[in-house]
Design a protein around this nucleic acid. Structure first.
Lengths: 168, 168
DNA sequence: GCGAAATATTTTAGGCTTAAAATAATTGAG
DNA sequence: CTCAATTATTTTAAGCCTAAAATATTTCGC
């Protein structure tokens, strides 16, 4: 068994071993990126064609759908893993379109509370239904009995990356 | 065993079954997206900090590194899965920076050939080395003996999505 | 209380991305 | 041969995204 090799720290390996190791990890990354790009592109296209909507807008609504009492604005960039500045114009437009409201907090005037409107909730539910169906269609040819396994692997991968990001 | 349920066409299911099915596929998609976003964000940050470079620029060089005789410009958007218009300014800047050349074909003056320069190749190799090491670092906590399994699952997923995209 | 550090949000500058329209060159049907 | 359809590429308009600077407000040490 080659367990010794697997547990050798990168810094102690020679050039060839490193190259081989890098290739395996690069393959994972390229596949991951390809799958995401493929699905994301198709979802974006359909959101645009069917609803004249974008995915980032949908993502904001999806967060607010689970929060009937609204959300502190600063929660959104954390949950969506995007920068705060990015969200400003997206929220602006959702407010202008009447899908959400943005009200300053009385306790802390730096803070704003965003909340979905009735109209927003109705629109979101309609789009979410299609979104689910689109995903089902795109993933239909992947064996259903292996979904849970894949989800587990991806959860672990995500955990491992988060771990690595916290170290330094 | 609930095999009957798994193979029932979506259109024949009732509301609850559909919802459950959608949730599983949505979970896969959200994990996939989270992993990609996490890794991509960190790689982008490091490219910027260490090399003052962007990932799309690196991706173009990566394609050209494997083609010593250069590539027809129109090949790039296909391989990188981006739109053609997108590449114009990226290629422009890589040319301006001296990393690649862009020469019109003599046989068909609509076509351009892009080719890495010696300087470009040198710069690319230096960055590629770091890129591999960064990935190794980010994925270090994922068990090495499960890489191949994950690669296989992702390959299958990609194939399934491509399949679904060709149907209509 | 006062002023410095911290926090929430927006603004700015620069780059990526797409879809659709425009431009330029080639091919092919008659 | 000629002109309409096709192909390769660029341009345009609109939106997403980040990092860093700016603004506004609150908190906390003293």
């Amino acid at each position: 068994m080659a367990l010794a090799k697997e547990s050798t720290p990168v810094s102690a390996r020679n050039g060839e071993d490193q190259e081989a190791e890098y290739r395996a990890q690069t393959r994972v990354w390229l596949r991951l990126l390809a799958c995401t790009t493929l699905i994301e592109g198709e979802l974006r296209r359909r959101f645009r064609d069917e609803f004249d909507f974008t995915m980032p807008r949908f993502d904001v609504l999806a967060q607010l759908d689970r929060e009937p009492s609204g959300l502190v604005l600063g929660e959104l960039p954390k949950r969506l893993m995007v920068s705060a500045g990015n969200l400003t114009p997206i929220v602006d437009r959702l407010v202008a379109d009447g899908y959400i409201t943005r009200t300053p907090s009385n306790l802390d005037r730096r803070v704003q509370i965003v909340c979905m409107t009735v109209e927003g909730r109705k629109t979101f539910r309609r789009m979410a239904k299609s979104h689910g169906a689109w995903l089902a269609e795109l993933l239909a040819d992947f064996p259903a009995d292996r979904f849970d396994g894949l989800i587990g692997e991806l959860d672990e991968l995500k955990g491992a990356v988060r771990e690595a990001l916290q170290k330094p």
